[in-house]
Amino acid sequence: MYASSKAVLCSLVRTLSGERIFRNIRFNCLVPDPTDTPAHMNLNTINSDAVKNLQNKLRT
């Protein structure tokens, strides 16, 4: 959900900046990256374990 919202916002800003450039109106899009927290670090290990499990299931 976060990644898709981020992409839509950046796309909207890119479109608006293209339409308004002839009027000297500029747009900027600032979107934060995920914050490094212990919970965020655990997501990486969970995802890698899930990928390994899926790869093992596909091999058999």
Score class of each variant (00 low, 15 high):
Leu43Glu: 09
Pro32His: 00
Arg23Asp: 12
Val8Glu: 01
Leu16His: 00
Ile46Cys: 10
Asn42Ala: 15
Asp36Val: 06
Leu54Arg: 08
Thr60Asn: 14
Asn56Lys: 14
Asn24Glu: 10
Ser4Asp: 10
Asn56Ala: 14
Asn42Leu: 14
Met1Tyr: 07
Met1Trp: 04
Lys52Val: 10
Asn56Trp: 08
Val8Asp: 02
Met1Cys: 10
Ala50Gln: 14
Val31Lys: 02
Thr60Gln: 13
Arg26Asp: 11
Asn53Leu: 15
Ser11Cys: 07
Ala3Tyr: 06
Ser48Ala: 15
Lys52Phe: 08
Arg20Gly: 06
Thr37Gln: 04
Ile25Ala: 00
Arg26Ser: 13
Val31Gln: 07
Arg59Trp: 05
Met41Pro: 04
Ile46Thr: 14
Leu12Cys: 05
Gly18Asp: 03
Glu19Ala: 04
Ala7Ser: 08
Tyr2Lys: 03
Ser17Phe: 01
Ile46Phe: 13
Tyr2Ser: 09
Val13Phe: 00
Asp49Tyr: 13
Arg26Lys: 12
Leu54Ile: 06
Gly18Ile: 02
Ser11Trp: 03
Ser5Asp: 04
Met41Gly: 10
Ile21Arg: 03
Asn44Pro: 06
Pro34Ser: 10
Leu43Cys: 12
Cys29Met: 07
Phe27Met: 01
Arg20Trp: 11
Ile21Asn: 07
Ile25Asp: 04
Thr35Asp: 08
Lys52Cys: 11
Leu54Lys: 09
Ser5Thr: 06
Lys52Met: 12
Leu16Asn: 00
Arg26Leu: 11
Leu16Met: 08
Lys6Cys: 02
Val31Ile: 10
His40Gln: 13
Val13Ile: 05
Ile21Glu: 04
Ser17Cys: 04
Gln55His: 12
Asn44Val: 15
Glu19Leu: 03
Asn47His: 15
Asn53Gly: 15
Asn53Thr: 14
Lys52Thr: 10
Lys52Asn: 13
Arg20Ala: 10
Asn42Gln: 15
Cys29Leu: 08
Arg20Val: 04
Met41Asp: 14
Asp36Arg: 09
Pro34Ala: 11
Asn28His: 11
Ser4Pro: 02
Thr60Pro: 08
Val13Ser: 02
Leu30Glu: 09
Val31Gly: 07
Val8Tyr: 04
Pro38Leu: 04
Ala50Asp: 14
Arg20Met: 11
Arg26Ile: 11
Leu16Trp: 01
